[in-house]
Every structure is written in C-alpha cells, then in structure tokens.
C-alpha cells in the first residue's frame, strides 16, 4: 500500500505538482479578493449599522448553498474555467471575514471610542488608531476561517475545469486508484492544516499587547 502510494506520487509528480500550484493559486486569489471586498465592507457596515443585518444576511444565504450546487449554478452563467471557480470561492470567503470585521469593530468598548472623540480624534484616527487595532484579532480569526474553508472548497474547482488538487482526487476516483485519491487529498489536508497553524500564530501576534493581560 505504502510503496504503491510512493510509486504513484513519483510517476504522477508532474500532475500533482501542477495541481498543487493551481490549488494554491485559486485559494490565494480568492482570499485576496475576498479580503479586499469583505474588510472595507465590514468597516462600512459597522459605521452604518442599519445596513449590517441585510448585508450579512445576503452573504449568509450564499453560505448556505451547498458548495457543489453553487459551482453548478455558476456554470450556466459564467461557463467553465478558473474565473467561475474563483467567484464561487470568493463568495464563500466573504461571510467569515465580513462578519468578524463587523463584530470586531462593534465590540470595541464604546467608552474607548467616546474618549477618542472627546480628545479630538478625527473619525479616521478613531478607525485606524482605536477600532482597527482592537478589532484585528477578530479580523484575523475571520481570515483564518475563510482560508481553511477556501482551501477545502477549492477541491471542487475541478468540476468547472479550473484544476487544483481536486483533479488528482477525481482522477483517482474514476480509475479506482486509491493511492492517487490519497495523493490529492493529503496535500489538501496538509495545506489547510498548515495555513490554519500559520494564521493562528499571526492571530496571536495581531492581538495588541495590552489586551493579553486579563
């Protein structure tokens, strides 16, 4: 079994390597765009709170669509290819980042922001010097959740022809080659776990020093 597995990795190393790179590419682009949308949006809805519920609600609905089905919905609209996969992944990445950014900012103690206002801080100074640093641990936790989610779901990108490690798994399934399935699944799991650990460390680093003594 193990020798079989090692042989498979050796003989299919080109395929696995390419799939691995595609997988990371898909996950990263999706996350980068997801952060670029959800972070400012989260800050915005924390300021204009009456829009918070509807905006979070919409992203939550997207989240409830099973991932395979979402890929399926998008194919008639967007065709197949990596763009379709990216859109689906971005949609999934939005909610955790958006919700955590929003929660992080609104949970900043109002006495602290009031003190800032009373001392003569401008709105943007309050955001950058008070709200953002204090919300950062929440935001990082959201990004971490989104990362693990995205790396996992990117496995399904193969069904819309966008490659990724899902390709390897799918081929293995079709040819009843358990070793090949494993050769695809294992890197996905390792990717997810290592990103999770890395971001956990970043999250800890992001916690303002004075907040740790409690």
């Amino acid at each position: 079994m193990l020798t079989n597995f090692i042989e498979t990795i050796q003989s299919r190393s080109d395929l696995i390597q390419q799939a691995f790179v595609e997988h990371i590419y898909l996950s990263f682009i999706a996350l980068a765009i997801g952060i670029a949308i959800a972070l400012p949006l989260g800050i915005l809805i924390a300021r204009y709170r009456k829009y918070a519920e509807p905006v979070i609600g919409v992203t939550a609905i997207f989240q409830t669509i099973p991932s395979l089905a979402l890929f399926g919905f998008l194919v008639p609209l967007m065709g197949i290819g990596s763009n379709t996969a990216l859109i689906a992944l971005i949609i999934y990445a939005l909610l955790p980042i958006l919700r955590n950014t929003y929660t992080g900012i609104i949970s900043v103690d109002s006495s602290i922001t009031e003190a800032g206002r009373g001392m003569g801080m401008t709105r943007s100074q309050i955001l950058t010097q008070i709200e953002f640093p204090l919300a950062l641990p929440f935001i990082m936790a959201g990004i971490r959740t989104a990362t693990v989610l995205t790396v996992g779901i990117a496995t399904l990108a193969t069904f819309v022809g966008a490659g990724g490690l899902g390709d390897v798994i799918y081929r293995g399934l079709q040819s009843y080659n358990n070793s090949l399935v494993l050769a695809g699944a294992l890197p996905v799991a390792l990717l997810a776990i290592s990103f999770d650990l890395l971001l956990k460390w970043v999250e800890k680093k992001a916690t303002p020093k004075g907040m740790k003594t409690n």
């Binding site: 602290i112 800032g116 003569g120 004075g210 907040m211």
Partner: peptide
C-alpha cells in the same frame, strides 16, 4: 476637532486605550 483638543476630557468608564502603553 481643534476645540476638543483644547479641552481636557475625563470620562466615567475611564476609556484608556487598552492596546497602548
């Protein structure tokens, strides 16, 4: 903003910024 910077302000719940020394 200038006005507030020229007036000291102490609030009940203290409101020190916890992430700053």
């Amino acid at each position: 903003v200038e006005l507030r910077r020229s007036i000291g302000y102490v609030i009940q719940r203290i409101g020190l910024l916890p992430h700053m020394t």
